[in-house]
Simulated scan of single mutants.
Amino acid sequence: MGRVVLVTGVSRLVGGMTCRALAADPALDRVIAVDTVPPLHNLGRADFIRADIRNPIMGKILAQEKVDTVLHLGVIMTPKQAGGRTLQKEINVIGTMQLLAACQKADSVQRLVVKSSSSVYGCSPRNPAMFTEDMSARRNPTGGFGRDSVEVETYVRGLARRRPDIDVTLLRMANLVGPGLRTTFSEYFSLPVLPVPLGYDGRFQVLHIDDAVQVLRRTAHADALSGTINIAGDGMLTVRQAARIAGKPVVSVLAQAAPLIQQASGLLGSSGAFDAEQMQFLQFGRGMDTTRMRTLLGFVPEHTTREAFTEVLGAPGRRHVVNPGEARV
């Protein structure tokens, strides 16, 4: 039987780039792209099907097309992308539930890969220096996307218990950065002045979008790979270090003022936007241990955290596209 891969969320940048990379892979017989709206970008030889993962029609698609591998990249990171928080949660949580129900019924499905997020670890002063995949959040995520990610992972693990014959892999990715990719994280660093909580300097990792696509492609091919894997570029930055790289001034603020800052950024109509839910991340940050990424996947990102951040969000005079052969510091 030939290899048939189905990818959700292809109208957005990560899903579209991943779908195109898979479509260029001669080892795959077919790539099926699914989303509620046709993508504006090229998907290569992939076959696009306009469908909503919340609709039971997904079960028919999996069965009729004899799909053996599903890449679920349809989780939406910000309410703005979805058209509001209510719709975001419905797509993320209800959509995932319906897709997993379809996978459970489809005898052809052998592998499921789900793009998750480091946000499941939350942000807390009691966090360890580095989270391994077996650790859980010391304080449950308060942001909408973080809560959605926790729920999504719960349902994915439920499918793994009900269908142990399916190889289920959760990829917990650090904040993604890439040209044209707009997220809460990138919006923050687009502000003319960066509000930083007084007395704090949170640490973080990022993952370049090109590395995200490559790890998704590799996981789609991995044999007998199940479980959760942290994915992030090497090294870490603090918020104030990142501000210097971005060439942005910072202003110290009280953490409790986050809602007021969000209102002010909206009224000013600046190129970026401040989301009050980011404040705990700016205070405490988070770090992930990526040993499993190297040992199980054999994957090493081309970009370190500093390289990826500098290339995408650095001040114009500091941006530098890293060649694969360049040595890392």
Rank of each mutant, 00 (worst) to 15 (best):
L176C: 01
R147W: 01
M236L: 13
F145I: 01
Y155G: 12
G298D: 04
S118W: 08
T86K: 13
A224T: 00
I61F: 13
L181A: 10
D25I: 00
Y121N: 11
T290P: 09
H208I: 09
N175M: 11
L296Q: 13
P79G: 04
A257Q: 10
E153K: 02
A232D: 03
L28W: 11
P128N: 12
F189R: 00
P195A: 06
R244G: 03
T183M: 07
Q263F: 07
E326I: 05
T78C: 05
P179E: 11
T305Y: 04
M130T: 04
G74T: 09
T78F: 07
R162T: 14
D223I: 07
L6V: 00
A276P: 02
G247L: 01
Y121H: 15
V34D: 01
L282K: 06
R294S: 14
E90Y: 05
G266S: 07
V113D: 07
S124F: 11
L170M: 09
A276I: 01
S190Y: 02
G227D: 03
V250P: 02
L296Y: 04
I229D: 06
P141V: 02
R244E: 15
A82K: 12
D47W: 04
F145R: 10
Q241W: 04
M130D: 13
G144M: 09
R147S: 13
M77L: 13
I209T: 05
A137K: 07
L191P: 00
L99H: 05
A257W: 04
A255Q: 03
A101T: 15
V253P: 10
S270F: 00
M17V: 01
L194A: 00
G95T: 04
S186C: 03
T18M: 10
L13S: 04
S270C: 06
A137D: 08
P79S: 12
S136F: 08
V93R: 12
S116N: 10
V70M: 04
M279W: 00
A242P: 05
A243W: 03
T8Q: 03
M130I: 07
R319M: 00
T305F: 01
R54T: 14
R3E: 14
L216I: 14
G285K: 09
V300S: 07
E302P: 02
G84C: 02
L207H: 07
V113I: 14
G9I: 04
R318Q: 09
T305H: 06
V215C: 09
D234T: 09
C103K: 11
S265G: 04
Q214P: 07
P26R: 13
Q262W: 06
S270Y: 02
L198Q: 15
Q64A: 14
T154E: 15
Q98L: 06
A258Y: 10
R30H: 13
A264L: 15
P192G: 15
Y200F: 15
A258S: 11
G84V: 07
L43G: 03
S116V: 07
V114Q: 11
P164G: 10
T169L: 13
T219I: 03
T238G: 14
S118D: 12
E187F: 01
R203V: 12
V14P: 02
A327N: 13
L225A: 08
D165E: 14
M288N: 10
T132S: 14
V5R: 05
N55R: 11
R111M: 00
F48K: 04
S190H: 02
T183Q: 02
D29L: 09
D211Q: 08
